[in-house]
């Protein structure tokens, strides 16, 4: 990973000169990612920006989008840590809106489930039932996007813990491959030009 951080640093040099006053640019993103990689080794660890109760709800939603089971889901991949770091750094401009949407989500959840303290505390079945009522909302779309980003982006960003996301889908993180690449090109005899002219 040290080569990656060197690259990220080099990329940042040109950009930083002109845009220091703006929101995060690449060096900040890279630095934040490095930090995230350092703190997120433990998917069960505490979040930094998100309050514990909010983090619990976010993690529970993510875990319904990609559930745990025979293979790791969003919870084991540490998606909540990705979201925590993203909203503190490269997606900080999205935080205010996201948080407001979360508060609204939590209020709606309490209204539908007055007997339970939070979404995270609901049974899995009741979580699914409630999510079905909000799956068309901008908040759910945002949560889904963040979950997928956290599940499948490079582990240095804080999610995809031990490449759990990549393993789930069978993606191999390598810099070079050789043919044959798959089952169907293994015994390919070579391209044969067929006769035939366009009409």
């Amino acid at each position: 990973m040290s080569a990656l951080s060197r690259r990220a640093f080099l990329i940042g040099v040109g950009e930083a000169l002109g845009v220091a006053a703006l929101e995060l640019s690449w060096p900040d993103i890279a630095a934040a990612a490095m930090e995230a990689g350092a703190v997120a080794k433990d998917p069960a660890g505490a979040t930094t920006l998100l309050a514990a109760a909010d983090a619990a709800d976010i993690e529970a939603i993510a875990a319904q989008i990609i559930p745990s089971g025979a293979t790791p889901g969003a919870r084991e991949a540490g998606v909540v840590h990705f979201i925590d770091r993203a909203l503190a750094t490269f997606f900080s401009r999205l935080y205010t809106e996201f948080h407001a949407q979360l508060v609204e989500f939590q209020a709606a959840c309490r209204a539908s489930n007055p007997d339970v303290a939070s979404f995270a505390a609901l049974s899995s079945q009741r979580q699914i039932e409630f999510l079905r009522t909000v799956e068309q909302t901008p908040f759910f779309d945002r949560m889904r996007l963040f979950t997928l980003l956290g599940m499948f982006s490079a582990p240095m960003y804080g999610g995809n813990h031990e490449s759990a996301g990549w393993q789930l889908i069978g993606f191999e993180d390598r810099h070079a491959f050789e043919p044959p690449f798959g089952y169907y090109d293994r015994d390919y005899p070579g391209f044969i030009v067929e006769p035939g002219k366009p009409a």
């Binding site: 089971g69 799956e135 997928l148």
Partner: peptide, 21 residues
């Protein structure tokens, strides 16, 4: 690539949950 793959699955079937996974 993986992120876009996961995003795109929404167009072909369920968008979340066990079946999506």
């Amino acid at each position: 690539q993986p992120i876009m793959w996961a995003q795109r699955m929404a167009l072909a079937g369920p968008r979340w949950g066990s079946e999506y996974k």
